[in-house]
């Protein structure tokens, strides 16, 4: 799909960004336009970046265990800025038991360790608005 813009973002204090960078690069190689925010952003900063850069997808990565707090906070702030249509996906060390709660909070899909990057590409292509 042409011209799909993806913001790859790391909310919270977690500095592990091997996964975020690998995913960002794989998405770029798949033809998306990718912006990587770097580490240690507040949900507010992420929502603002999504607005400024006019992205269709926000891909959140977190390995610290703070996902139940920070992923929903990002979704809420995106909505507050009128970005209801932005597709929000997440990944990281996330127990299966947390996934239904994150989906209910508006995270469209959660990708856990071992996921091929091609699954993420396919999911975005199928679901981006």
């Amino acid at each position: 799909m042409a011209n799909v813009k993806v913001l790859v973002a790391k909310p919270g204090l977690d500095g592990h960004d091997r996964g975020a960078k690998v995913v960002a690069r794989a998405l770029r190689d798949a033809g998306f336009e990718v912006i990587y925010t770097g580490i240690r952003l507040t949900p507010e900063q992420i929502a603002e970046a999504a607005l400024q850069d006019d992205v269709q997808v926000v891909a959140l990565s977190l390995l610290s265990g703070a996902h139940n707090t920070l992923f929903p906070a990002c979704v809420e702030l995106l909505k507050a800025k009128g970005l209801e249509d932005v597709l929000v996906i997440g990944g990281g060390v996330i127990p299966d038991a947390d996934i239904p709660g994150l989906k209910a909070a508006g995270v469209a899909e959660v990708f856990t360790p071992g996921t091929p990057t091609s699954n993420i590409v396919d999911f975005i292509n199928a679901n981006v608005k």
Partner: peptide, 19 residues
């Protein structure tokens, strides 16, 4: 603790005691 914030700092939201 690793980044020099108290548990009450706004930046610590969701991260206290996690890793």
């Amino acid at each position: 603790t690793q980044i020099g914030y108290d548990s009450t700092d706004a930046m610590s939201e969701g991260e206290v005691g996690k890793v």
